[in-house]
Write a protein that binds this DNA or RNA. Structure first.
Length: 321
DNA sequence: CGAGTTTGACCAGCGC
DNA sequence: GCGCTGGTCAAACTCG
């Protein structure tokens, strides 16, 4: 097939194979509707090339929570941030530290992550930039720089599944499939244990892109859709029906639920374009409670740029400037 | 007719 | 080693 070429344009792939289940309880424990963006998360998000966007026909959906699963695992309670963002900052910070240099964790990082235990440090070796530390040669064998996820039978036997960075978030939505600017093809559906709702598996229709996503409804609250992304897009979104690309961050930001503090929330692929914010705010009308807005720090008026990261992931035209 | 979805089967990883 | 479960494949089917 064609999805062989370096599926990791950013070279930021850091695998994580350990457990990564989404913390299930916290949804309630966390004050409703509050977003939790770890600097690290947003980093990866953009690496994923996200452009989260609610579908037109849906009244609205609140991003309940955002969690980079891998990190979440390592940090004692990454999601316990309702107003306690700092609580996880030790973790987020360290994560950021690891990636701050590159802002995307693509390079430099060091294993200096006290918070990130062996679990991560092993699988997420900072120096993976060029070769996924966790990719035992035997797996990708097939064809040299082949992406970890080999969507062919060749991978079936003797080849361990390689996990790419995963990211999950919960949204309150009536529709399962959130429009994020990319086209997805469903390739499977499975019943999930302890959940009356099936889990759907999607992969990016771009043959060169290995990004996948899982969509399922929370068994606790059927109104909540849990979307998990895995991998990063090696191309650009197809755009949204309404025209104009908007980043989920922008959307969140517009909703007042997202605070682009310094190097935390800026990312090449999804750089926040302030020019579109107003329209987003109007069209999306993502509700935000007073309590939420209260607990959120003010948005930083200036978004840092990181040319270094833009690298091959974002064509010049996509950059803000 | 091509693209996307459905669905049963198969496989790998993990816990016991 | 065995069984369970999640993840993926791929043929059949649906839809535009």
């Amino acid at each position: 097939m064609e999805d062989k070429e370096g599926a990791d344009p950013g070279g930021t792939e850091f695998t994580s194979d350990s457990s990564w289940s989404l913390p299930s309880g916290p949804v309630d424990s966390v004050s409703d509707g509050v977003n939790y963006f770890f600097d690290r998360e947003s980093s990866i998000l953009s690496e994923f090339g996200w452009n989260l966007h609610p579908v037109d026909h849906q009244s609205h959906h609140d991003i309940e929570r955002f969690a980079e699963l891998d990190r979440a695992e390592s940090c004692s309670r990454p999601l316990d941030l309702a107003g306690n963002f700092s609580a996880s900052q030790s973790c987020a910070a360290s994560a950021a530290a690891a990636g701050s240099g590159g802002g995307g964790g693509s390079s430099s990082g060091t294993a200096s992550n006290p918070g990130l235990s062996a679990d991560v440090s092993t699988s997420n070796n900072p120096s993976v930039s060029s070769s996924s530390s966790e990719d035992p040669p035997e797996k990708s064998t097939g064809s040299g720089g082949k992406p970890p996820e080999i969507p062919s039978k060749a991978r079936k036997k003797g080849q361990k599944r390689i996990r790419q960075p995963r990211f999950a978030f919960m949204t309150k939505s009536e529709v399962d499939h959130l429009e994020d600017g990319y086209r997805w093809r469903k390739y499977g559906q499975k019943a999930v244990k302890n959940s009356p709702f099936p889990r759907s598996y999607y992969r990016c229709t771009n043959s060169k892109c290995t990004v996948k996503k899982r969509v399922e409804r929370s068994s606790d609250d059927p109104a909540i859709v849990i979307t998990t992304y895995e991998g990063q897009h090696c191309h650009h979104s197809v755009g949204f029906p309404r025209g104009g690309l908007i980043s989920h961050e922008a959307a969140a930001f517009a909703a007042g639920q997202f605070t682009p503090t310094v190097s935390q929330f800026y990312y090449p692929g999804v750089q926040l374009n302030r020019e579109i914010l107003p329209s987003i705010t109007q069209s999306q009308q993502v509700p935000i409670s007073a309590a939420e807005s209260r607990s959120l720090p003010e948005p930083t008026p200036q978004l840092p740029t990181d040319e270094g990261l833009l690298g091959d992931m974002v064509p010049p035209g996509m950059r803000n400037r």
